[in-house]
Design a protein around this nucleic acid. Structure first.
Length: 476
RNA sequence: GGCCCCAUUGUCUAACGGCUAGGACGCGACCCUCUCAAGGUCGAGAUAGGGGUUCGAUUCCCCUUGGGGCUACCA
């Protein structure tokens, strides 16, 4: 049974890197018909917050990544919040102590800082000096009874190597001597990441640990723990990180990092999924993937080793692709609130026809607001360059006035007839079609670029078109 | 500092020892066209550097350089 997990720590919103780790795990599970588990690693009491939990749920929800076991829906291996599993960590820590593979350490953070500084001054690696290993059992009992602050440390095997057989990177060997007696349980009684992670992955029967590259160096410590407990290892797959434009780890400095912020900016979740799936993974030359196609094609073999830079250009292109491909009704649903917020309540039929006119012209959903204004508001200004070009001509007045007159008499006011009016007028006045259309466009929209003119004229309606042409004539 | 990972156009990537190093975004030109988009065609643009191994290296090995990670009572 394939069982994978996404294990974020709730110290902020779900961001791009986390979202992709979640996605790869989810795709892997869905591809193999396995289970995808969400586990919240909230053992950092200082930084974990309830709001972050919610933000992570919302982010996953927005992306459409659902979990088979985890918070809210539970599961047979719960609880899925690490802070609710404290008794488990405590038990296993005691087992390790009893087996002589872990010990109590009473060194204070201050003492450790001094030792570390001294080691660095001697140009030695800043490792723990194992001093508490040698404490007499009586002294340990005494200090424990006294309630002295302490941590529990892992007793590192003296020598040997820890070998990570990584599904993406191949065999990676670490010498145990470069590690030190790392902390398993903090003085507040909470487990550290490496300890809780191993226990939970084992207890939750995780088969594949798919996680960011930043954990590769942690893996030897974890392997040592699996071995101390006599447990088999899960398969490991370390995926490359996502970096910002400056090749540094993605952070606030790189703009929007939380996945939900992209919703607010106007990206579609499917476009985001498609984009982050392709960051560090590929399948031939295919660029566009539906969810179903991603599930079908995804495999760890297709994952690259090199870090990827998060670049908005391709996301923008993808978003445009997705906007063009969604059902017009759905586009209307997405755009309506924004348009209403800006221009007030509108007749729905009219509003939805307007929005559909712009389906090929949006990169981001909110682009609609700035493109469609003249359909809801009077034209109060003319594009200066356009006015210079189309209104300053000698025949501008004649064209607009003739056009206004004919359109004013047109009945029914429909596209085919409107088109005929423009064509006939151009012919009669011995003008190119554009010479009629351009001034008209400027007159009725104030702009030099709009959707095709006959559509705009028809949708705006006879009354508006006539009025706007009159205003333009007055302006001339 | 020590250990580990990574290295193909500006960006995402393909080529898993063998054609003129392929595709996508972006960029430029052209076509379409009433404008803007969309769409189509074409173009510029890369194997970080140096050593090996080999008949032959993007591909395998080593060194250098560059970037990233871990080295916490963060995860």
């Amino acid at each position: 049974m394939i069982r994978v997990r996404f294990a974020p720590s709730p110290t902020g919103a779900l961001h791009i890197g986390g979202a992709r780790t979640a996605l790869f795990n989810w795709l892997f599970a869905r591809h193999h018909g396995g289970k995808f588990i969400l586990r919240i690693e909230d053992t950092d009491r200082e930084r974990s917050t309830q709001e972050s939990n919610q933000a992570i749920f919302r982010g996953l929800d927005w992306l459409g990544i659902d979990w088979d076991e985890g918070p809210n829906n539970g599961g047979p291996f719960g609880p899925y919040f690490q802070t609710e599993r404290l008794a488990i960590y405590h038990d296993y820590a005691q087992k390790l102590i009893a087996a002589g593979q872990a010990y109590h350490c009473f060194c204070t953070p201050e003492e450790l800082a001094v030792k570390r500084a001294a080691a660095e001054a001697r140009k030695e690696p800043p490792r723990y000096d194992n001093s508490c290993r040698r404490l007499a059992p009586e002294e340990v009992q005494q200090r424990l009874a006294r309630g002295d602050k302490h941590v529990i440390r892992f007793m590192l095997p003296a020598a040997g190597e820890s070998i990570v057989e990584d599904l993406i990177r191949g065999r990676v060997v670490f010498k145990n001597e470069v590690l030190d007696d790392f902390v398993l349980v903090k003085s507040d009684g909470f487990p550290t990441y490496n300890f809780a992670c191993v226990l939970d992955d084992h207890l939750m029967e995780i088969s594949h640990v798919i996680r960011g590259d930043d954990h590769l160096s942690n893996t030897p410590r974890q392997i040592l723990l699996y071995q101390a407990f006599g447990w088999g290892l899960p398969r490991f797959a370390h995926i490359p990180m996502i970096l910002g434009k400056d090749r540094a780890r993605l952070s606030k400095r790189h703009g929007a990092t939380s996945v939900i912020a992209y919703n607010d900016i106007g990206y579609l979740p499917d476009a985001m999924i498609n984009y982050i799936a392709k960051l560090g993974w590929g399948h031939g030359d295919q660029e566009l993937f539906s969810r179903q196609e991603l599930i079908e094609s995804f495999s760890l073999e297709g994952v690259t080793k090199n870090p990827a830079i998060f670049d908005l250009d391709k996301l923008n292109w993808l978003n445009g692709q997705y906007i063009r491909n969604i059902l017009p009704e759905r586009l209307v649903d997405l755009c309506e609130p924004l348009v209403v917020a800006k221009y007030g309540r509108q007749d729905f039929t009219y509003l939805s026809r307007v929005i559909r006119l712009f389906q090929d012209r949006l990169v981001l959903i909110p682009d609609i607001v700035n493109l469609c204004g003249y359909f809801f508001e009077k034209v109060t200004a003319y594009d200066p360059k356009g006015a210079e070009k189309y209104f300053k001509k000698d025949n501008a007045k004649a064209i607009l006035s003739a056009l206004g007159q004919r359109l004013g008499q047109l009945d029914p006011f429909v596209k085919e007839h409107i088109e005929a009016v423009f064509k006939e007028l151009a012919k009669e006045m011995n003008l190119k079609l554009g010479e009629v259309i351009h001034p008209c466009r400027l007159a009725i929209s104030g702009r030099t670029e709009t959707p095709p003119m006959y559509d705009v004229v028809e949708l705006l309606g006879k009354e508006q078109v006539s009025a706007r042409i009159q205003s333009a004539l007055a302006y001339l």
